[in-house]
Amino acid sequence: MLKVIQLDKTYGSNKRSLKDVNFTAQPGEVTAIIGPSGAGKTTILRSVNQLIRDDSGQILLDDQDIRQANKAELRKIRHHIGMIFQNYNLISPLTALENVLHGRLGAKSTVAGMLGLYSNEEKTEALALLDEVGLKEYAYQRCDQLSGGQQQRVGIARALMQHPKMILCDEPIASLDPKSTKIVMDILRKLAKEKQLIILINLHQVDIAMEYADHIIGINSGAIVFEGATKAVDDDVLQKIYRQADDAKAVVSANED
């Protein structure tokens, strides 16, 4: 279980900060964070694996506080947290298989990782994972020759190579067409159910969140304004989550007129 307690974060001046963020995400569930642009969705996600630091609060993954971990411990923790991105962030001149194998870097010695010395078991597993996301025949293709949806699936396979307890998804479908969106979201939901993973996902698309998420966290201006089961989300809740941004927008357009 992931438990985030009283997370605070300020960027330099005062913009894009997190204020007293508390929420939990359960294994076997898809937890979606929704909210207007700039509300702090990405900041929350990146705090969880400490790509963004200097905050206060507690981030407990199976009762271990990620924020208290030293460098070596953090590396070990990160090894068990997969992450996928809007822009896939694969190393594009390398093959799909090599990118999946990168999922092992956190568990390997520095030199073995640097030189790409992977065991036969690791190579076999990487190929099996590509098969699982339906990309076996693309294993030896450069990633920049794959479509967006395919690249995102390679990203998922890379995350699975980490034997993750949790996968963080930062706007995973924002650059995808509806068909690829469905494929990727179906895979993520399946992983949550079958492997009992925590899937924590930032989404712009409310309809996708409503369709796939079990648990919804609504965030506005760095503060959580809703947390609960997806079926508890109604128009009033959505208005609360998206209100201020719309108001702000209305003010701006009023000024322009």
């Binding site: 694996n49 790509l51 590396r75 070990k76 923790i77 990160r78 090894h79 947290i81 997969g82 992450m83 190393i91 990168h102 999922g103 870097l105 956190g106 568990a107 390997k108 520095t110 990782g113 640097m114 890379r158 995350a159 980490q162 963080l168």
Partner: peptide, 10 residues
Amino acid sequence: LQAVGANYFQ
């Protein structure tokens, strides 16, 4: 790559 736990040299 940092997120998967890779260190500087990796």
